[in-house]
């Protein structure tokens, strides 16, 4: 009986909280009013998951960028790929009264409202990498996967002299980065004699990429190049080709260019090229400092990419147009 009452109370509470107020709270025009300068600022950073090295790198970049600024204190939270946990992060940051929130959301729809609420309560919000819906945030910072895929396609077209047989190892095709890196690549090679002879979904995973590449090698005697949607995928393909004794006749191209993955593989001569997918961690802190000083910032920042090849890796890569 007691338990029933508790349950009823919980449900009632949830209903009140859930349905109580409509979303439109007459958004203030400039919620981030110029604030009085403080000695220290607390920044809350909610990361959607730390299972991917790229996101670990993003946190590391934020930490490194904040270090020279003793007035900044960054609190990191990891949502472990759980949307509701990430929503709770935002709410915790609001109730803790942080000065600024950086969020790299797991998905757009469910996090739009929590982010909007935080923004409306006067806390500036920087959205990193993945978007939320609408415009209830301060600044959105991201790279453009489609553009990077297109740059990879164009580079491959040039490297192969306009024709050749290519294997495409795709990232998880239910994810937007996978879709965009695929669509951009097709755009980049459009009109050339390049033929994609084998394509498979390796779900961003190196062991899967190796398996799929072994199948491609068994089927096709002539493969000129492998385009993988991430560097571990390209590395897995290389290992498969090496085991078959065919690594010297195939070139491997990947995306992400993390220092310990893609850049290392290029430096070691394993990959022909890797296209950087920047984390935006450094830009997020730079933007945060501007916001905290009361300076205006653009609503959206599109990050540039860098290309790492054997020739440019020692010099830290080259800027992509």
């Amino acid at each position: 009986m007691k338990r029933m009452v508790c349950l009823a109370g919980l449900v009632a509470g949830w209903m009140v909280a859930g349905c109580g107020k409509p979303v439109e709270q007459a958004a203030p025009a400039t919620p981030a009013a110029p604030r009085a300068a403080k000695a220290t600022y607390t920044i809350g950073m909610s990361q959607c998951n730390l299972g991917e090295p790229w996101r670990v790198q993003m946190n590391a970049d934020i930490k490194a960028a904040a270090e020279p600024h003793p007035e900044l204190k960054v609190v990191f939270k990891d949502a472990q790929n759980d949307t509701l946990r990430q929503r709770a992060h935002v709410e915790e940051f609001v109730s803790a009264g942080v000065d600024l929130i950086i969020i790299s959301p797991k998905e757009a729809q469910p996090l739009t409202e929590p982010v909007a609420k935080a923004y409306q309560s006067g806390i500036p919000v920087i959205v990193l990498d993945r978007a939320v819906l609408g415009d209830q945030y301060t600044c959105f910072i991201a790279a453009d996967n489609r553009k990077i895929g297109k740059a990879a396609g164009e580079w491959i077209k040039q490297a192969l002299g306009g024709k050749g047989k290519v294997v495409e190892l795709k990232g998880l095709m239910t994810s937007t980065p996978g879709q965009d890196r695929h669509a951009g690549f097709l755009e980049g090679i459009a009109g050339s004699g390049i033929e994609v002879v084998f394509e498979a979904d390796m779900k961003w995973l190196e062991p899967d990429a190796r398996k799929e590449m072994e199948s491609a090698l068994a089927r096709f005697d002539a493969i000129d190049l492998v385009y993988a949607h991430n560097d571990p995928g390209a590395h897995g393909a290389y290992l498969a080709a090496k085991a078959a004794g065919r690594d010297s006749s195939i070139r491997f191209v990947g995306i992400d260019a993390l220092p310990q993955e893609g850049v290392a593989y290029v430096a070691q001569g394993i990959l022909a090229a890797s296209f950087q997918y920047p984390t935006g961690g450094q830009e997020a802190i730079a933007t945060a400092l501007q916001i905290l000083k009361g300076e205006p910032v653009p609503k959206q920042i599109v990050l540039g990419s860098r290309l790492f090849t054997k020739a440019s890796v020692a010099a830290g890569g080259e800027d992509l147009p």
Partner: peptide, 23 residues
């Protein structure tokens, strides 16, 4: 496993104290 590796893959690129990578 995540604690022992710091969440990163343990690869042939070894990070030095100064942040540079040694292969």
């Amino acid at each position: 496993a995540k604690y022992a590796s710091g969440g990163m893959k343990v690869s042939t690129a070894v990070q030095e104290v100064d942040g540079a990578y040694r292969y």
